[in-house]
């Protein structure tokens, strides 16, 4: 290990500090006592739906279309999850079926 224990602690501390900054900043900038500006209230209303969409894309960020399994397991399984959920609307059923299918596909197609 090239770093000393102290340097390691500082490095981990920086990662903790950075992570906490991204989580605490909105709450520190807009404390509950004062009314948030209308623009921020507007963002609070419209951002969540956009953020959930972004999070879905975030999950497939490492999928490669040109190598490996060409993203087929991911896209087929996501399709099945979406189809099952819109059809039956049973969360655990959608999750379990999609995940098992994915685990099967990456083994069969590999």
């Amino acid at each position: 290990m090239s770093m000393t224990l102290f340097e390691q602690m500082i490095t981990i501390g920086m990662v903790v500090l950075g992570t906490m900054a991204t989580r605490f900043v909105p709450f520190l900038v807009f404390p509950p006592g004062r009314a948030a500006p209308p623009y921020v209230s507007y963002l609070g209303k419209v951002l969540p739906a956009a953020t959930l969409g972004m999070l879905v894309v975030y999950c497939i960020r490492d999928v490669s279309l040109v190598s490996g399994t060409h993203g087929i397991p991911e896209f087929v399984s996501i399709g099945v999850v979406a189809f099952l959920h819109i059809w039956k609307r049973k969360m655990l059923l959608s999750l379990a079926s999609g995940t098992l299918l994915y685990m099967l596909l990456i083994r069969v197609l590999a």
Partner: peptide, 23 residues
């Protein structure tokens, strides 16, 4: 350490959106 902090801020920037949504 500075590089570690900057990289963390970039990787975790999405939390800002979570915070604004959860105010």
């Amino acid at each position: 350490p500075v590089g570690a902090l900057m990289l963390t801020l970039m990787v975790n920037a999405r939390h800002l959106f979570y915070g604004i949504s959860m105010l």
